[in-house]
Each structure stands twice: as structure tokens, then as C-alpha cells.
Computed example of a mutant assay.
Amino acid sequence: MKIGYRTVKTAVGTTLSLAIAQWLGLQFYSSAAIITILCIKTTKKKSYQTAWERIVGFALGMATSTIIFELIGYHAWALALVLLAFIPLCVKLNATDGIISATVIILHLYLLKHVSLAIVLNEILLLVIGIGMAMLANWHMPSNERKLKESQAKIEANFRTILHEFAAYLREGNQHWDGKEITETARLLKEAKSLALRDIENVAPYDCAYYYRYFEMRERQFEILERIAPSVSSLDQCCQQGKLIGDFLDRLANAVHPGNTASYYLEELEQMSDRFKASPLPQTREEFETRAALYHFVGEMKRYLKIKRDLWIKQKKKEETEKHKLNRTK
């Protein structure tokens, strides 16, 4: 059994909420602990959103229950009318997370059978203590940078292996490669993007999204690698152009890293494409099919490299914009 950081924060925050509410002598003091549990989320952004929805829910719940109970009376069927009015309002205002905590407050009023300033103040303090302790507990969020770097390194290692295996097939024919890096990379990319998005939601401002953009770029490149895998297997390894592409893929595999080398390899690919065009026309159907597969492969690799080049162009423009803003501020 593993006890995570969020579990520890929840336990400590809930206990403190309960203790503070009880120390202040509030009625239904355990509700403060419940609100804390409900407000502690996996990211700061989600916690802030949940807190806001609970405040909205509280206001709607107090208003609708006070009006209906005071007009009709504190009856079970009156409670049904309160919920019929209150829940749709919360949904309309996108405050569905506030329904549960506000319903607890509505039930408090139902049990007390009257509304007074002291009761309203009691409920407000329960809400403030519960939400305040949750925000305090979620103030510190552990950074996922180490895990993101590990995922980045593993994904790049898998990319290198895949490209080397493609190159080996083009030069030497059938290889005993089980392709596990392909399935593993698909899983790693999904997990890494989710982790990077969580990091964005914990950091302000929300434009600190390098890793998310990076993994999104690698995901698009990976889709191309998956697409060209059948093309590689259909190429004739004895073809001279196939061997040239194999050598190119080996060099490209050795250059898989976070840095920008896409422009260099795009130029090399263009030169290779020009050499293919200058080659003698195919004489047989097999040669024609092989040449067609090669052109398709080269086109896909161009798209593969342009994806990374475009990311670096955007990153460069962003850095220049931020530098310009900083200079203007000075």
C-alpha cells in the first residue's frame, strides 16, 4: 500500500479543518472537513475551479432553501422543491461541483427548522474554513519535471531504435525486431502528455508548456513513423535508393534529441530527393513500385522533420516576443 503526497495533504487538511471548526464551536463542524476533502484536487487549477463552484453553489443553496422553506415550511416535499430549483441553477451556471456541499448546507437548514443571521454565519464559516484549508494544502504542488525528463529520454531512445531498425531493414532485409518500441512509445506519449498538462495546471502563468508542446510534437512525428512502417517493409532492400535512405535514417536516429537539427536534415533529404529524380526511369513493374514507395517514404520523412522545425520556429518567435516585452518594461 502506497501513501501519496495528495493523501497526506488530504489527511492533514481535513483534520485541521475539523479541529478549527470544532474549536470555534460551530454547529455541524464536521462539514468543514468534508468540504476540504471535496476541494483538494490533483492540480491547483482544478482546486480553484472547484472552490469557485462550491461558493456559487453555497449562495444558490442558501437563497433557494431560505425562500422556499420560509414560504412553504420545513417539510420533506418542500426539500424536494428546493432541490428541483437549486440543482438546475447550478448546472446552468456550470457549478455542478457545488451541488454536494450546498446540499449538505440545505439539509442543515432543514434540520434546524429556521434561518437566522447566526445560522448563515455558521454556514459561511464552515465553507471558508473548508475551502481555505484545501487551498492552503494545495498551495504547494510537487514538480513533475524529473518524470517528464525521464519520459522525454525514453521516448527519444525509442525513436532512435525505431529509425535504426527501419534503416537495418532497408540495408539488410528482414530483421528479428519485435516492434515493442512502437507500442511502448504510444503508451509513453499518452502518459507524458497527461503529466505535462497536469504540470501546466499547477504553474502560473499557464504558458509554461514546453513539455506539453514537445510531447505533442513527438506524438505527431510518431504517427508518421507508424504510417511509414508498412512502406519500409514493402521496399526492396537491394535497391540502391533504399540503401541511401537507410544510411540517412541511421544519421537521423543519432540526432534524435531536444535540440533543433531538423533544418539540416531537411536539406539533406531535398538533395537526396533530387538525386532520385535524376536516376534512370524504372524498367520493370517491381522497380516502379519500389520507386513509388521510396517517394512516398521521402515525402513522409519531410513531414516528420517539418513538424519539429515548426515547433522550434514558434518557440523562437515566442522567446523573441518575451525578450521584446522585457526590454520595453526596462
Rank of each mutant, 00 (worst) to 15 (best):
I162D: 01
I155W: 00
K149Y: 07
I162A: 04
H140P: 04
M135A: 13
Y110A: 08
L112Q: 13
A192L: 04
E191D: 14
L111R: 15
T183H: 03
H140T: 09
I105G: 12
Y169V: 02
L148Y: 02
K193N: 07
S151H: 15
A196Q: 07
P142A: 10
Y110H: 11
L117Y: 14
P205Q: 12
N138Q: 09
A157E: 14
L107G: 04
T185W: 00
A204E: 14
N158D: 11
L170K: 01
L125W: 10
L117S: 13
E123I: 08
V203H: 00
T185P: 01
H114R: 13
H140G: 09
E165C: 03
V104K: 11
A118T: 12
I119H: 04
P205W: 13
A167N: 02
E123M: 05
D207M: 02
A153C: 07
L163D: 01
H164M: 09
L109I: 10
N122V: 10
L117F: 14
L136N: 07
P142C: 10
R198S: 09
N122R: 01
Y169H: 08
H114V: 13
S143H: 10
A196M: 09
K180C: 07
A186E: 15
Y169K: 04
A196P: 11
E145Q: 14
D199I: 00
Q152P: 06
K147W: 12
I200G: 00
L112G: 03
E201R: 06
K149M: 12
A157C: 05
K154Q: 15
K193G: 05
A192C: 06
H108D: 10
I105R: 03
V128A: 11
L195T: 15
D207Q: 07
K190I: 15
L170E: 06
S194F: 07
D207S: 07
L121Q: 08
E181D: 14
R160I: 04
L188S: 04
L127D: 02
L109G: 07
L127K: 09
Y169C: 01
Y110Q: 08
H108I: 15
G132F: 03
E165V: 08
N174H: 13
M135N: 08
R160N: 11
G132N: 06
E145K: 15
